[in-house]
Measured scan of single mutants.
Amino acid sequence: MPSETPQAEVGPTGCPHRSGPHSAKGSLEKGSPEDKEAKEPLWIRPDAPSRCTWQLGRPASESPHHHTAPAKSPKILPDILKKIGDTPMVRINKIGKKFGLKCELLAKCEFFNAGGSVKDRISLRMIEDAERDGTLKPGDTIIEPTSGNTGIGLALAAAVRGYRCIIVMPEKMSSEKVDVLRALGAEIVRTPTNARFDSPESHVGVAWRLKNEIPNSHILDQYRNASNPLAHYDTTADEILQQCDGKLDMLVASVGTGGTITGIARKLKEKCPGCRIIGVDPEGSILAEPEELNQTEQTTYEVEGIGYDFIPTVLDRTVVDKWFKSNDEEAFTFARMLIAQEGLLCGGSAGSTVAVAVKAAQELQEGQRCVVILPDSVRNYMTKFLSDRWMLQKGFLKEEDLTEKKPWWWHLRVQELGLSAPLTVLPTITCGHTIEILREKGFDQAPVVDEAGVILGMVTLGNMLSSLLAGKVQPSDQVGKVIYKQFKQIRLTDTLGRLSHILEMDHFALVV
């Protein structure tokens, strides 16, 4: 994948999101292997301009796509893939009243899908469409860049269908997702969380590099694949309309690839034109409109599966009536509230959605109805927002919020430890010299600072030695090549209790 991002070429006709291997024109390309080798690009942008032909009021008969309808489940399912879809609609009884809503608040519980998330729908649909058009064949390999849930859905379907599955996901995604993927037989590649989507090191860039190296491999490409919004247009939206008897006044959905909100909203605009569509985008993402909503100094966020630093091709923002931004604290607070007060075992993005819903639905009156999409299960986040310690460490809970008995030293300040200034190293000294210094002084790690004293990161003896043994660096290389740029900081005025929580999850903390 090139470091400079080429513009994806656009073909003359058809839909841009065809499933299957992508040609340089962004659509299915038939021909000899030699032709494909000559024409197939190194990668295709996940934010390529959409060429979708959908228009409100256009006859369904003019759609270029294969459409399906929700099917009634048999008493005995032939395999677990038949437990994807037909998820329950559940009334939220307490939270709406707590925040003064007059309307009825309903939750579409997508964590009841077989793999635990709304992404099971698009995973199965992308595979079925690729099999139907002859792209996927027995023994082929599926590769997908994902925040985890699409990966789980694909790995689940691949396990049943017999495909090899490789999932490329950023490091910030939970260990629970990784464990589930491994249990399903998927191979996992992790990428830096802070890598831009168009960087060769991003999950998108690495996935395309693997595709170019592995024979008979395919990126189904949830960011561009029409099967993504079509899955929701054909099934999720129809289920909502049936469950609500066609009567709903507002739908609120958090947005990642945009397939969920695009597919549902398009069908609702056709069948229930008075329904307002509300999009939820986390602070630090750029999906919301108008652009002024996205202006923030924050560039990272903890909530998973929603928000991006690019506009995915499948996201149709014209069908969203209003956007709201959400933050991590309210997302996790509301997710825990949904679990504790409503018994809905949902993930953090569901918290984002409901946090926005109780604001947006203030305009609705008694007798009206708001539906929220709860995308995934708490299963993926047992060591994250479900953990009091994690919430404390991230600053989303305060010590006084917890009532468990603490040891005698818990409320003492870090400054009472009488710490001395640490050994520091410059980023320009060599790895070999740094190892000598650390061994001589008896230290395992040291902060790396520039000549102005600005902290650049941390270097550890173990990481340097393993990097040297693996051949990633040489003793003569500058130590700046092996620094940890993500590390926890703590102030002298913070409590030892807070430091204790940090050290339970990290090997060190830097006192500043």
Rank of each mutant, 00 (worst) to 15 (best):
L220P: 03
S3D: 04
V168E: 02
W54K: 06
T135A: 11
R51H: 07
I240F: 07
I264F: 12
K98E: 13
L56Q: 10
G116T: 13
D47F: 01
G11C: 09
Q242F: 09
P49V: 09
L136A: 05
H17Y: 14
L106G: 09
D249P: 01
P200S: 08
C109S: 08
D129M: 05
G263C: 00
A195Q: 11
M173R: 06
G258Y: 01
S254N: 11
T141K: 11
P78K: 09
M250P: 00
P78T: 12
K36R: 14
F111L: 05
M173H: 07
L230V: 14
A159P: 07
L156C: 02
L268R: 01
G139K: 01
P2K: 07
H67G: 05
I127V: 12
A159W: 03
Y223F: 08
R45M: 09
K267M: 14
E62Q: 14
L106K: 09
Y223N: 02
P170Q: 01
K119P: 01
A265Y: 01
I219C: 03
Q55Y: 10
R164K: 11
K36P: 10
E29T: 12
D133M: 10
K119A: 05
G153W: 01
S147C: 02
D140M: 08
E40R: 06
K102E: 09
M173E: 02
L210M: 08
G31S: 12
E144G: 01
K119T: 00
G115F: 07
K39L: 15
V10P: 08
C165Y: 02
W54Q: 06
G57P: 09
R266P: 03
S254F: 04
A207W: 01
G259M: 01
L230R: 06
Y223K: 01
S254I: 03
L220K: 04
S202N: 07
P145V: 03
A69W: 05
D245P: 09
G85S: 06
P59G: 05
H22Q: 11
L28Y: 11
W54L: 06
I127P: 06
E270Q: 11
N113E: 00
G20Q: 10
G100K: 08
S117C: 04
V180M: 08
V206D: 02
W43L: 12
S27R: 07
A207G: 04
V180F: 05
A60C: 10
P46D: 04
S227E: 10
P64D: 08
D79L: 06
